[in-house]
Design a protein around this nucleic acid. Structure first.
Lengths: 203, 203
DNA sequence: ACCTGAACACCGTTCAAGT
DNA sequence: ACCTGAACACCGTTCAAGT
């Protein structure tokens, strides 16, 4: 029960910071799956030191994203489309990050939710998405029967597309996806993509 | 210039077949990036034999997909939506395959186009997509100003989503995406996802 | 309290030697 | 013509030993 707050040693702090700087550079070049040995080498510390500070690769990614997430949550998104675009762009910071975040978000916040920065950030992202989806529904720009999951899927998919094919294609996917989620957009057809009729019109 | 057709040795053929069976099982379990040593071991051959038959991992994947592609091209898709769904489903056969195919398709058919089965198949897929996009435009179910690339992006994204989140979410993404590519669907707004007006109506 | 680096298990890829 | 398996370079992860 004694939560004795031990103050960290100064070399520990220095090494931690150096590791994050190195990880950012290495991940930017080689993606989220890049060599951790290379990260440690670049930071000028032994591999054991990296594992001491960050027991899992997930911890490295989480720590690396912390600052970016602060910035992300500090902005007031101008509607759902803006939020989707911003998150998709963020989730494509490193190659492989989209997959990383998608699985983390799906797991509802990763393995150990307590004290886990990445898990907490994912939860916050989910909350904000919920809110903006509700707003968009109220504003009539999102159909009532489109679940939040569909929007989250679009965000993840767009992030992956951004990694693979660049921001232009990702933006266009978002535009089309959201347009297709507007009230009435999925009324006629959507089955075979041929005959533009057949379902009874709404109201 | 002498294209002397040498007939392959029988043990060579047997090993090749065994390698493909093993690769299918291992890839199904661990994805496209799975251990090739494990594949060779499961096939009961030495690692060198694997590399003799398939110099690169891409060749393994290509050979593995050959039969599936024959089946894919044998079917007559019932419109663009059907084709997009079919391809997305196919491209999610193994984990990691979506990324594999996306980059191959983007490269216009991979490194060595001549005699490369995977490259040829990708080219065929591109052709068929072109044709169905043209048909959909003519039928009025796809807006004239939607480039084929947008449809291909949707196919790739849906395949990735299928790997990550399952077929339900992938299908819904396709439905929304295609609905958003219908004539007129992107007319009003699509900027901030808030005010449903502002652009001049069509015609 | 933190750091080091050897140690172990694994994988990709090549290539000399075999049959 | 094809197969084998040792060899090399690399990586993830742990842990005893240091300071």
């Amino acid at each position: 029960m004694s939560t004795t707050a031990r103050r960290p040693r100064s070399d520990g702090l220095r090494n931690r910071a150096a590791l994050l700087v190195a990880a950012d550079a290495v991940f930017a070049a080689d993606g989220t799956g890049a060599s951790l040995s290379a990260v440690a080498a670049r930071a000028g510390v032994a591999i054991g030191t990296l594992y001491k500070h960050f027991p899992t690769r997930r911890n490295v990614v989480g720590a690396l994203l912390a600052d970016r997430h602060d910035a992300l949550f500090a902005t007031r998104p101008d509607g759902l489309a803006d939020w989707v675009r911003t998150v998709a762009s963020h989730a494509a910071t490193y190659r492989g990050l989209a997959e990383f975040l998608a699985s983390d978000l799906a797991a509802g916040g990763g393995p150990d939710a307590a004290g886990d920065r990445l898990a907490a950030d994912c939860a916050r992202m989910a909350e904000r998405t919920d809110r903006l989806v509700a707003e968009a529904r109220a504003a009539g720009s999102l159909a009532e029967d489109v679940p939040v999951e569909d929007v989250v899927t679009l965000m993840n998919a767009a992030a992956w597309v951004r990694e693979q094919e660049g921001s232009v294609r990702a933006d266009r996917l978002i535009t089309a996806g959201l347009a297709g989620m507007r009230p009435g957009a999925r009324e006629w057809n959507s089955g075979d993509g041929r005959t533009p009729t057949r379902r009874e019109p709404r109201r």
